[in-house]
Amino acid sequence: MPNYTVLTEFLLMGFADRWELRFLHSMLFLLMYSATLIGNLLIVTVTTLDQDLHTPMYFFLRNLSILDMCFISVTVPKACVNSLSDNRAISVAGCASQIFLVVYCVYVELLFLTLMAYDRYAAICQPLHYPVIMNHRFCVQMTLASMLSGLFYAGVHTGNTLRLSFCQSNVVHQFFCDIPSLLRLSCSNILSNLLLIFVSAIFFDGTCFVIITMSYCCIFSTVLKFPTREQGKAFSTCVPHIIVVSLFLSSGISVYLKSSVSSDAIQDMILSVFYTIVPPFLNPVIYSLRNKQIKEAVRKVVLRKFYSKHI
């Protein structure tokens, strides 16, 4: 009988060994974290207060911004505190919570990005039927369905991971708890875990990828029939969304579908940054700075606040 040790905590990997480098990395991540919160909070505020932005597109954008604030808050604050205090410990319950919340946010984020691609398809390719296709009831139902199904999806993956026995090192080769890193620490048979990850990635990620790809194929074929001036405007709203989706999908799939036994820890940490930190950080930039309606809404909200204080 092998000797099993009941783990009470895991040790997360730091950004670097030297304190100076850890401090620089932590400050960089905290700046990105602060910018993400401010940018997404700004989007939520203006899309809520401005009646002109109460449309399906901005409804999904508002929900995406709320999700992004939650998503980045799951990993970055804990990682920065651990790195600055040189205390890398995280309890088993805390690790389980991180796994659940990361999987949940990834699942719902991808569904929201898919719905936003479908919304663009309906607006550009079916403009006359757009109010009927993307009515308020449909938007609310799809949002609730995404959030509720995410609870089941994350619960299954988290439970299937925590049922394993961990009798090796308790050092998680990642700056937060994720499934691939824990699978490397397990001495149980992880075949069912790998199979679940592979099947869910193929069916869920594959389905979302197909829907997004088909939506943009139809969009581009329609846009090419537009006048040259309108083509540029349509492409400028679609290309940034495609970049975010491509970055999010490619980095996430690379981490979860790589071998759980032989994998470079530093490379995994960099890839994890690209699907847990970069998309929430870039979304406000992409959907705000390049959007005239958002800029105009921000200007009106600021002027409204200014006049209310001076009257």
Rank of each mutant, 00 (worst) to 15 (best):
V298L: 05
S73T: 01
N189T: 06
F29K: 02
H129N: 07
P56H: 04
L64G: 01
V244Q: 07
V285N: 09
L101T: 00
Y153S: 04
I133P: 04
S250R: 13
H173A: 08
R22I: 02
L185V: 04
Y121S: 12
M13A: 06
N40T: 02
A234W: 00
S169D: 15
K309E: 01
I294P: 05
H241M: 11
P280G: 07
I43D: 02
Y4D: 05
A89M: 11
H25Q: 09
Q141P: 13
G252S: 14
S181M: 01
Y58C: 08
P2L: 13
S288M: 05
M214I: 15
T75R: 06
S246K: 15
I253V: 14
V302C: 12
C167D: 12
D264T: 05
V239K: 12
K225G: 00
I90A: 00
H241G: 03
I202M: 15
L151S: 10
I277S: 02
I311A: 11
K292S: 09
D178L: 10
D50Q: 08
P77F: 05
E230L: 15
C139W: 03
F209D: 08
D264S: 14
N170I: 06
L289N: 13
S236L: 11
H157V: 11
Q231A: 04
C218T: 08
L12G: 03
D264H: 12
